[in-house]
Design a protein around this nucleic acid. Structure first.
Length: 830
RNA sequence: GCCGGGAUGGCGGAACGGCAGACGCAAGGGACUUAAAAUCCCUUGGGCCCUUUUGAGCCCGUGCCGGUUCAAGUCCGGCUCCCGGCACCA
């Protein structure tokens, strides 16, 4: 239902102010301004065809923060750009038979329009678009920097392969065994691929999380889990030679990583992964060879996602070989088992069935010996009494010289012993894997490498950057890069020996593009370097980063990694890129995340036409605490709209007009002054804290309600009303910039409200002459007293004792104890 | 399994250990209006009870069970359910 005449003229004022701000360059930043800097950054978006109000949350939050900080006197940098390479654009382009560059740039234009209509202000002179050569040239440069440091390498490895997107994926892009983008089941494929050695930085990425006090705890924990550090010992188990064979190279000891060295005396067998490269050699001469190989092939064929699930039945087979437990000197069997992962540790695990659930289950199934070596207080040590493994710490039993030692201490002592006797060594293991960055798809930055028959892989010299992504390419996914067969692209000479060579055909993961863009905003037009070290060192780390929690691991980990590499290269001086992080909640509609595929998107265009951008912004911020998910309710928008209309009417009304609706409820100047200062304090505190815009807006609503009950008579009172309104407009300006700016000018000001200082409160005004104190008798509210605020405990007690309701409840009994909380409550216990 | 976070009216959500439900939505009633829209006012957690009435009062109530405290949505112990992360990681 279209409203014919809006209750306030947002249709006229919003476009006008958007134009004015652009003309006045309100958001354009001079880097060397004297004011303190504030870098407010919203995660740059993927240019999708059209934004919905769920996307809006992000930008509105960021814009409110930026505008607030401007009013606090900061030189605010609030840039915007587009994460424009990547699969979705390419897939959409294929579907619509259009070039991804064309559609991406179209989307960018549309998004810029939408952001503008939302009233979000950015320094557009700093816009970056990651799919344009003047940007990706420097993404390639960063690749070369990593390559130069030995942090980019190519290897053949089992990689995650998305059969639908026809490309490899990083570990971080596999969610529950499915492609993060298209949800197709990920397969394993052996491919030659480029990796970034993020594992080299595992410890620092973990350690420096401690520096990130301005980050949400949960994001830090998610990164910690992802890095997955565990401390333990790598133990060597000598292989027992087969009878009648000469000990061969294949018989060197098998190393196992364990976090529970204290249980070594209970290791009754060893299990090896079906993928282990030494396996075939180990079983070459055993009589069981045929059976073992058949079983191994069965295990390898098992669906990876199924196989790596805890619930999956454990399966194994005896290899026919034995190893020696280095502590007991016992000969123990070597088994192959489907639950041993090749990618973690050494791919070989010692099994202690008494003290590990998995080993216990496996030992039971295959009737392998179970030996108790950790005593449970007050429980039987007999193996038969074990219904399940005992995994908790305890006192060592049957553990040779280490018997009687508590397990935690034993871990250290046994590790020392092993290191002395060279049978094992302390080791730290991480779950984090190297970052696979090659993609066999078209729409990405080409990896700047050249393959030469003679010289091998040769980096493209920096002066030859960018390696341009050719535009006329058949980019239908085939599983190999579309650039592979592009003649002009491939035609290249080895930079080292000048013989004909071929270019690396793979493109880079888009997460490489996004792991440094915040540096580019500082000097976006620089043609000589990726970023200006000096300026970047002054402007970073980002003061406030805002984005979705879905990037908690992927983008935020990669960006931290690249930052650390650049730090080590001496190109930047800060260890972490983002000082404070705010992760906003999702907007839910009809119980699900808003998405085009679910058909539950709410378009901002329509809402803005109907209610105006300020209403949409106000409602978005008012819905709930911004870090939590919130359900979008169309009716709620109406409420925000009504509030702005009320504000407009109050501010625009004639001074003589009557406001107080009912005499009895009218408020006096004293109360208004008190409420004014209270509101300033509340809004300021909420904004300085964790961006609790919802309660800040509530406070503004309450204050406006108060103003409607105020009827100024004297000149002084009229002045107070005016002051109240101007202050309220300033408090609301970050949230509803257009209507605030309009009213501000109508009040007679000629300078933008965003360059006027944020209101302050006077704590003396927060002291009231008279206030209400709750009187409790034995913890229950029985009465309320209006008392002077500076009243003494003795006085208020006497007043309370005279109160008829209180007297009735005390009923002559003795008051045993009196608790007085000044300004709040008096509790008399009988 | 481990680690986070959460559970408050019909709904979104407020509450330095101190009046639970601010603010907003929805609903109901009323005013204005020929009517509608817009606007404004009142009521709105549940139960009980007294009174001729206006009203006033009492009890219960923040997922469940227990504890600390003059006082618990908030702190402590033990659960249930929901959301998120990690997970056959040795």
């Amino acid at each position: 239902m279209e409203k014919s005449s809006p209750v306030y003229p947002f249709r006229e004022i919003e476009p006008r102010w958007q134009r004015q701000w652009a003309e006045k360059r309100l958001f354009e930043v001079k880097l060397e301004d004297a004011r303190p800097k504030y870098y407010c950054l919203v995660m740059f978006p993927y240019p999708s065809a059209s934004l919905h109000v769920g996307h809006g949350h992000n930008y509105i939050l960021g814009d409110a923060v930026a505008r607030y900080k401007m009013m606090r006197g900061f030189n605010v940098l609030s840039p915007m750009g587009f994460d424009a390479f990547g699969l979705p654009a390419e897939n959409a382009a294929l579907k619509n038979n259009i070039h991804p560059k064309t559609s991406t740039l179209q989307n960018v234009q549309n998004m810029k329009r939408q952001l503008g209509e939302w009233g979000c202000g950015y320094d557009w002179t700093r816009e970056v678009t990651s799919c344009l050569p003047d940007y990706y040239r420097w993404t390639q440069w960063i690749f070369l920097k990593l390559y130069g440091k030995g942090l980019a390498y190519k290897k053949k490895a089992a990689v995650n392969w998305c059969p639908s997107c026809q490309t490899s994926l990083a570990n971080e892009q596999v969610v529950d065994g499915r492609c993060e983008r298209c949800e197709a089941k990920v397969e394993s494929k052996n491919l030659e691929q480029w990796f970034f050695k993020i594992t080299t930085y595992a410890e620092r990425l973990l350690e420096d999380l401690k520096l990130l006090e301005g980050w949400p705890e949960r994001v830090r924990i998610m990164q910690e889990n992802w890095i997955g550090k565990s401390t333990g010992v790598e133990i060597d188990f000598p292989v027992v030679p087969l009878k009648g064979t000469v000990p061969s190279k294949g018989d060197s000891p098998l190393s196992c990583f364990t976090t529970r060295v204290d249980t070594i005396f209970g290791a009754t067998y060893v299990v090896i992964s079906p993928e282990h490269p030494r396996l075939s050699e180990l079983v070459r001469d055993v009589p069981e060879r045929k059976n073992v190989e058949a079983a191994v092939n069965r295990m390898k064929a098992q669906d990876l996602t199924v196989r790596s699930q805890l619930e999956t039945e454990k399966e194994g087979i005896f290899t026919g070989r034995f190893v020696v437990n280095p502590m007991t000197q016992e000969k123990i069997p070597l088994w192959v088992a489907n639950y041993v992962l090749m990618e973690y540790g050494t791919g070989i695990v010692m099994a202690v069935p008494a003290h590990d659930d998995r080993d216990f289950e496996f030992a039971k199934k295959y009737k392998l010996p179970i030996r108790v070596v950790i005593g449970r207080p007050g429980k039987s040590l007999k193996t038969e009494a074990f219904k399940e493994a005992y995994e908790d710490p305890g006192i060592l039993v049957d553990s040779g010289a280490f018997t009687g030692i508590p397990s935690e201490a034993a871990k250290e002592k046994i590790a020392d012993f092993m290191e002395r006797n060279k049978i094992g060594r302390r080791k730290i293991q991480y779950r984090l894997r190297d970052w696979l960055i090659s993609r066999q798809r078209y729409w990405g930055a080409p990896i700047p490498m050249i393959h030469c028959q003679k010289c091998g892989a040769v980096p493209v010299p920096e002066k030859d950057l960018p390696v341009l992504l050719p535009e006329s390419v058949k980019f239908k996914p085939t599983g190999v890069s579309p650039l592979q067969d592009h003649p002009e692209f491939q035609k290249v000479k080895c930079p080292r020996c000048n013989v004909p060579a071929r270019r690396e055909p793979d493109t880079m993961d888009t997460f490489v593009d996004s792991s440094w863009y915040f540096l580019r905003y500082i000097s976006p037009k620089d043609e000589k370097r990726a970023f200006d070290t000096q300026a970047v060192n002054r402007w970073l780390p980002v003061d406030q980063y805002i984005g979705g929690v879905e990037h908690a691991i992927l983008h935020l980990l990669y960006a931290r990694f690249i930052n650390k590499v650049l730090y080590d290269l001496g190109l930047i001086s800060f260890k972490e890129p983002f000082a404070r992080l705010f992760t906003q909640g999702m907007i839910i509609k009809d119980g699900a995340k808003m998405s085009k595929s679910k058909g539950n998107v709410v378009s901002p265009d329509e809402l803005i036409r109907k209610y105006g951008a300020d209403t949409v912004r106000l409602y978005t911020l008012f819905m709930g605490p911004p870090e939590k998910d919130a359900e979008w309710q169309d009716q709620g928008v109406e409420g925000a709209y009504r509030f702005l209309a009320r504000l407009w009417r109050m501010a625009a009304r004639e001074e003589s007009e009557k406001t107080g609706e009912r005499e009895g409820r009218a408020l006096g100047a004293g109360e208004i002054r008190y409420e004014l200062h209270r509101t300033v304090k509340k809004v300021t505190d909420d904004l300085e804290g964790d961006f609790h815009f919802n309660t800040a807006i509530s406070a503004c609503m309450e204050f406006l309600n108060c103003l409607y009950r105020f009827e100024p008579h004297t000149a002084e009172e009229k002045k107070l009303l005016r002051e109240s309104l101007e202050t309220l407009v300033k408090l609301l300006a970050p949230f509803v910039p257009h209507v605030a700016e309009e009213l501000w000018f109508r009040f007679g000001h000629s300078e933008t409200v965003f360059r006027t200082p944020w209101p302050t409160y006077d704590s003396r005004a927060l002291v009231r002459d008279e206030e209400e104190v709750v009187v409790q008798v034995s913890g229950r509210v029985r009465s309320r007293l209006k008392v002077p605020s500076q009243i003494s405990e003795e006085e208020i007690k006497n007043l309370a004792l005279q109160d008829p309701k209180v007297r009735e409840w005390i009923n002559g009994r003795e008051v045993k104890k009196v608790i007085y909380v000044p300004h709040r409550l008096l509790n008399m216990v009988v």
